[in-house]
Amino acid sequence: MSVTLSNTPVLTTERLVLRAPVAADWPAFHAFMTDARSEFVRPGELDEGKAWRAFGHVIGHWVLRDFGMFIITEKGSDAALGSVGPWRPAGWPEPEIGWSMWSAETEGKGYAFEAAQAVQAWVRPTLGWTRFVSYIDQKNIRSQALARRLGCVIDPAAAAIEEGVDAWVHPEGAA
């Protein structure tokens, strides 16, 4: 008995494959959500039950919106290294591209940039997005650096999702 997400897109970059989440990604997601690394993308401390529900929503978002967070994997391995993708839960004022790398070992290789750049290029023609943002905590220095590298700038006039979180607008590209 199994139910999987299907008809979901797969994006391929030079070194990475971005695919929809599967049940087998739960341990990696759980490890991330209970680690200090995830402090900027969760509301306080999460126990296992809350982390589980958050991951359920990551999956369900695909069904509800027809798009969602891709899981970042290296070519030749299906192990989940992080997530990146278009994101629009209820309450989000504008469409977002969100990202997270789930462990320190995979940092410093430019993977997050490579993955986010692929998604940036994908959402414009595929979802028809023109203006979209990334919501980044003002204390999340690494994520801000990635946003700059992707050509994003803070829009002080953009609607906020919470205090202390800036909306970084992505550059307009050819749709």
Binding site: H57, H61, G91
Partner: peptide, 22 residues
Amino acid sequence: ERNLAWRSFGHVVGHWVLRGYG
């Protein structure tokens, strides 16, 4: 509130994928 209800509903959907039932 509605924003949290959304995440809860997302989990209702995702539970099917995570467990194979729901």
